[in-house]
């Protein structure tokens, strides 16, 4: 098995799985019916993308595991998502800020992945891009509505952006598997997306009358499997059914 390609695919798709889990957990808890539906729709798109990636990863691993095993039965240290997507729904501003800070990256990343010479990854990227551009439109809209809204909503959105900012730099961190895949012409060189990312994010923040955080302190670890304390709680929800009733099927 091409272990690096396998890890590389998980590095991409675990982000969508964990963010999808966060958004899906809001079912019935959204601040209004419309936003509730939007969050679960975003979750559904992300899970759909994850299925394609994991089916491909299972084919490469070729060790009898299915897409479901990969999604449900790994240990915390084996999940390779960035710390940003596992951060909790402190309030709705956090939910939208997390989504926005990821969406901008996600779209830039998929735009590059689409040009990939690995045809499967390229096909998944092309399909996903269309969906993610709707996500980004939705989350950017909320950044502006809350940022440029009432005094209270502005404060909350600024707090969410300031808090989550510390996780943005990790998006551009390369793991060993990333570096090897880039050198083989399959991986996307994320370091090259950084300037464009902050440019796009800053434009929206300015339009939302929000302050661009100046902090130079960043946290990373998720891509190497070292997660924040929130991840364990998230996984115990995500994995509950498969752990309680092993091999159960829908």
């Amino acid at each position: 098995m091409n272990f690096n390609l396998y890890k590389y695919i998980l590095g991409i798709s675990d982000n969508s799985l964990i963010l999808g889990q966060r958004m899906g957990a809001l079912t019935g808890h959204g601040p209004s019916l419309e936003t509730d539906i939007a969050c679960t729709n975003i979750s559904l798109d992300l899970f759909g993308q994850v299925r394609s990636y994991y089916q491909y990863a299972a084919k490469i691993a070729d060790d009898g595991r299915t897409e479901d095993d990969i999604a449900m039965l790994r240990k915390e240290r084996e999940y390779l998502n960035v710390l940003l997507v596992e951060q909790p729904d402190t309030d709705f501003a956090f939910t939208m800020a997390r989504q926005f800070l990821f969406d901008v990256y996600h779209l830039l990343f998929l735009t590059e992945l689409q040009k990939n010479k690995d045809l499967t990854l390229s096909a998944i990227a092309t399909k996903s891009m269309k969906e993610v551009s709707y996500h980004q439109r939705f989350s950017s809209d909320w950044i502006k509505r809350l940022g440029d809204g009432t005094e209270e909503s502005h404060l909350k959105m600024q707090d969410a952006i300031d808090t989550l900012w510390t996780y943005t730099d990790e998006l551009f961190h390369q793991t060993e598997a990333d570096k090897i895949m880039v050198s083989e012409g399959i991986g996307v060189d994320v370091t090259k997306l950084k300037d464009n990312y902050y440019q796009k994010v800053n434009n929206v923040l300015e339009e939302a009358t929000l302050k661009i955080p100046e902090s130079k302190y960043f946290q990373k670890g998720g891509k190497e499997g070292i997660h924040t304390e929130h991840m364990g709680y998230l996984l115990s929800d995500l994995q509950y059914m498969q752990r309680t009733y092993p091999n159960m099927e829908w």
Partner: peptide, 13 residues
Amino acid sequence: LVSQFGSTACKAQ
């Protein structure tokens, strides 16, 4: 426009 997301992934309200 009521919402960019509707009753299924393909629709808006």
